[in-house]
Amino acid sequence: MASNQPSIPAVPGRSRFRTLRALAVSALVCFGLLVACADGEATPEGADVGPEGAAVEATFEIWAMDQGTHIIHIFDPELNETATIDLGARGAEVPHMIEFTSDHRYAFVANPATGNTAVIRAQDREVVALLDTGPRTHHAAVAPDDRRVLVSVIGAGDVAWDGKLVEIEVDLENESFTLGRELLLAEDPLFAERSDDFFETGGAVCMDFTADGRIGYVTLGPGLDEGGVVVVDLESMELIEVFGPDEVRANCGTILSPDGGHMYLVGGDADVGVWYAVDTETHTPVHQGESHGHDAHGSWVTPDGSEYWLVNRVTVVLQTLSDKWADFRSCT
């Protein structure tokens, strides 16, 4: 797959975005989130408004999660801390990844240590639901229509083949969040046919939806040797494609390209940093690149869609990809 890579045209920009997962990682503050209020989607309390209530200028908050203390720190655009949320006091420990609904009213936080997903009402910082989703709950991804969340669960380290995907049904009008369907990866027929290609200790790590919300791409892990990718049809809750770790060395970040044509996937460990672009029509990997660092992990696309940012944790190198696959810049 790494050889004979075709030339892929640049992808156009996009005008808005839902959330920004933090790219830089430290020993304690492992993940952050930028809530953007753009295109009149949401106007925070106290913000300046123009005619008919339209926001005069975009504003935002930064939500930074400290895995050591289980606290979310919230900052304004000037980096003044304005609030904290103690998730540990509410039964959620080691907050790891966070996503918001498209109107930024609710946040979903995956908590590996307690195996649950917290739902936070952003306006008053209240935890309105705490759902048991499974051991080493790693990521809760919000669907484009805000009607469901799909949770990636790695599973217990001492239990074989218990990695899974868990659906949360969302009713924003009634502020209702309930557990829905589950897909135990090892029980899916397509995965079972390929089980010899995978480690029994691995599970679902990160996922993202296609633009129409019908398909999900899920990286496996947490270790790179436990990695790979599965593609799930969310109508049937069944796998339609499976790639083992020898085919796609991915175990972390998933993000859709601005035009929806490619899903970017990331893989890394102490000596490896790679990323892939997968065609979302054919579900075929069409490009593989090096991250120019070690332990490639988080990634995101800039708000204007012009750059793909990727962080390497071990070497603390931030890579950006713009215009062409090979056009890389780095900073430390």
Results as ranks from 00 to 15, higher is better:
279 D>N: 14
251 N>A: 03
258 P>F: 06
103 D>I: 09
130 L>P: 03
27 A>N: 11
321 L>A: 03
113 A>K: 14
184 L>P: 11
165 L>I: 10
30 C>H: 09
213 G>Q: 09
260 G>N: 08
154 I>P: 00
297 H>V: 01
192 A>H: 07
119 V>L: 13
91 G>I: 05
96 H>Q: 12
40 G>S: 10
253 G>M: 01
220 L>F: 01
279 D>E: 10
57 E>K: 12
80 N>E: 08
142 V>R: 04
100 F>P: 14
113 A>M: 13
257 S>A: 08
209 F>Q: 00
132 D>Y: 10
271 D>N: 14
243 F>K: 09
279 D>R: 03
221 G>M: 01
229 V>S: 00
43 T>L: 01
219 T>S: 06
318 L>C: 11
182 E>D: 15
94 V>T: 13
315 T>W: 02
166 V>P: 03
56 V>Y: 02
275 W>N: 05
164 K>H: 06
25 V>I: 15
231 V>P: 03
314 V>L: 15
270 A>T: 15
273 G>M: 01
139 H>W: 06
43 T>K: 06
171 D>I: 06
128 V>W: 08
2 A>H: 10
266 V>R: 00
76 D>L: 07
116 N>D: 10
20 L>W: 07
260 G>M: 04
16 R>N: 13
118 A>Q: 06
136 R>L: 12
265 L>H: 09
175 E>K: 11
171 D>M: 12
13 G>C: 06
206 C>A: 02
274 V>P: 02
162 D>A: 04
240 I>P: 07
294 H>D: 13
322 S>V: 02
269 D>R: 10
198 F>Q: 00
119 V>C: 09
14 R>W: 13
230 V>R: 02
247 E>H: 00
53 G>L: 03
226 E>K: 02
312 N>Y: 05
40 G>P: 02
80 N>L: 06
255 I>W: 04
71 I>E: 10
2 A>F: 12
67 Q>W: 00
318 L>M: 14
18 R>E: 09
285 P>R: 08
282 T>H: 09
308 Y>S: 04
106 Y>L: 11
44 P>R: 03
199 F>T: 05
59 T>P: 00
246 D>I: 03
79 L>F: 14
254 T>A: 11
204 A>H: 00
82 T>M: 13
47 A>F: 01
253 G>L: 02
71 I>S: 08
7 S>Y: 14
224 L>M: 08
25 V>L: 12
124 D>C: 12
22 A>V: 14
129 A>V: 10
320 T>S: 15
154 I>N: 04
253 G>I: 04
294 H>G: 01
75 F>D: 04
302 T>C: 07
193 E>T: 15
17 F>G: 08
260 G>R: 05
104 H>S: 15
192 A>L: 07
33 L>P: 05
94 V>R: 11
194 R>D: 01
184 L>Q: 11
117 T>F: 10
328 F>S: 15
34 L>G: 03
198 F>L: 01
